[in-house]
Simulated assay, not measured.
Amino acid sequence: MREKTTDYSDHGFLIVDDKAFLRGIVQSMLMLCQAGRIERASNGTEAVKALARNSESIDCVLCDWNMRPVDGLEVLRSIRSGRIYNTPRDLCVIMLTGHADEHLVKTALALDANGYMVKPVSMAKLVEAIDRAFARPVILKPKVVYDSIGCVDLPEGTSDKSAKRTLPWVLWSEMGGEVPANRGDRLEKIRAIATEKAGYRADNEREVVNLICMDITSIPDGKVLAEDIFTEKGFLLLASGTVLSEALLGRLCEITKESALKAQLIVGDFED
């Protein structure tokens, strides 16, 4: 293995991969490079939370693509679109994948990924990718450009074919027109309903299966939210794993009527 000539002691890293052994391999390599800080996340949802919590200590995100319920491209899109609270849009992001799919590469480049690596990751490739990424800052496009870039479906067998991968869901976009004066009150009512009963609170310890993307007006009472819902400022409103009651769905329908957003959500059921 490469000698410890690389010094990343002034840099913090976030490793995002749904396979623990791969997170461990990358972490070991970064430790050999004397990385100053290392955080780990097992999927895109955890990555978004980690960034919102302490992005000031993270200089580079090493992110796998093939994860659920939020994949790596969605994390990248959320960063570039400014959807994650307290996280700079030009944060360095290097994508990791098990295969060099042309559509995936083009989408990652369109979303301004700083780098791209095909697994298995070697020490030499990792250092080269990180050094190149740090040396080439991103020239950011307008937020709406990133939001308009098409999704890439996860490989067959990864999740339900009916579940289209989208970025973490955000209420009101910059294209949504004027925000109603009573919007704050409406958001508070949604929060209150979500926490009124224990059964409606987010349960992130349970697997959500049977994923499907549905129009918000067609979602039946009792379905489980399978993606986080944020305000446009990056604050978490409803977490993945929240059971959607009739009252919650009604409030969400009400609050999206005045928005230009396509009102669809990824929902599912708790695994027995």
Rank of each mutant, 00 (worst) to 15 (best):
Q34W: 01
I219R: 01
S55D: 02
R183D: 10
M117T: 01
A100I: 05
A47P: 01
L238G: 07
F230S: 02
P69E: 14
T6W: 09
T45V: 14
W172A: 06
I149R: 07
E128Q: 14
E246H: 13
A202V: 11
V16G: 04
F13N: 06
V209Y: 09
A108M: 02
K106Y: 05
L171H: 06
S81L: 00
E39S: 05
V127M: 10
T231L: 14
D203Y: 12
I219T: 05
G177F: 12
P168M: 05
A113S: 15
I58C: 04
I79T: 08
I219A: 03
S148Q: 11
V152G: 03
L109R: 13
A41G: 01
P137D: 06
I149E: 09
V179N: 09
S162M: 06
E196Q: 13
V208Q: 03
R251K: 14
K106G: 00
P142M: 06
I130G: 03
K49G: 06
L237E: 11
M31W: 04
Y85T: 07
G268L: 14
L167A: 13
H11K: 15
L211P: 02
E102K: 12
I229T: 02
M1E: 09
I130P: 00
R53H: 12
G184Q: 15
R132P: 00
I149Q: 09
V209S: 08
V267P: 09
T5V: 14
D71T: 10
A181D: 14
A41D: 05
S42T: 07
D18W: 12
E39W: 00
V105N: 00
L51F: 08
A124R: 13
A194I: 07
E46C: 04
L32Y: 07
M31D: 11
K143N: 11
L238K: 08
E205K: 13
G44S: 01
R183A: 13
R206N: 10
D272V: 13
D90W: 06
M1R: 02
P155E: 14
K257M: 02
P155N: 15
D147R: 14
V224A: 04
D160I: 04
V243N: 07
M29A: 01
S55Y: 04
I38V: 11
V179W: 07
G98H: 04
R251S: 12
E178R: 13
R77T: 08
D17H: 09
M1A: 10
C151I: 04
R89I: 08
R201F: 05
P137L: 08
S9P: 04
E254C: 03
S259A: 12
E3N: 12
A198G: 00
E178Y: 06
D131M: 01
L14E: 12
L22R: 09
M31Q: 15
R136H: 13
Q34G: 00
L187S: 10
V208Y: 09
H103N: 11
L211N: 10
L109W: 06
P120I: 08
S218V: 02
E39K: 03
D112S: 10
I79K: 03
N210A: 15
T158M: 15
D153I: 04
K233E: 13
T195Q: 09
